[in-house]
Amino acid sequence: MELLIDIVLLAILGIIAVAILWTRHLFVATMLSGAYSLTSAALLVALDAVDVAFTEAAVGAGISTVLMLGTLTLTRRREKATNRRVSIGPLLLVIVTGALLIYGTVDMPAFGDPNAPALLHVVPEYLAGTRDDIQIPNIVTAILASYRGFDTLGETAVIFTAGVGVLLLLGRRREEDEEAGTRRPEREA
């Protein structure tokens, strides 16, 4: 059953990805990208990553879609037609990269392997520590906020940085920027 869900969801993702590649309508692509995130979220649930699924749904399907739509109203809806032919260079690059990754999977632990090295090293301590020391049920939260809390501080700083950047870029009225774009630095006499 798990396997079936897994495969169906992956297939849907594949179809969406191809559709994104194919469509020339940016609005459609944006919506498809949202759908992609939502389907991913479903798959993440199937993979036991409920926290991540939750976030991916909220961010990928929610906020980032809204931002893209906002961008589209400010720019335009359609991609230029000429850009659609298959370009050899990028294709080659992608094939090589993909082949490399697949080559790397050969020595990977099998999917779902309960004895994968990653499960044996640090994880057991986290499980025990969360149960005994921190005493909260959600292990992900325990790691996120305490064991690896510093990463999360960094993550908050990343979000803050994005806010600073967007404010710097879009914080002012458009006319001010247009006026500014043409000037040279004021020469101090």
């Binding site: 036991d48 779902g112 499960l119 149960r131 909260i136 959600n138």
Partner: peptide
Amino acid sequence: GKVAGGTAPIL
């Protein structure tokens, strides 16, 4: 990170 037959990491 998936473990076959595993559940979400919530105690």
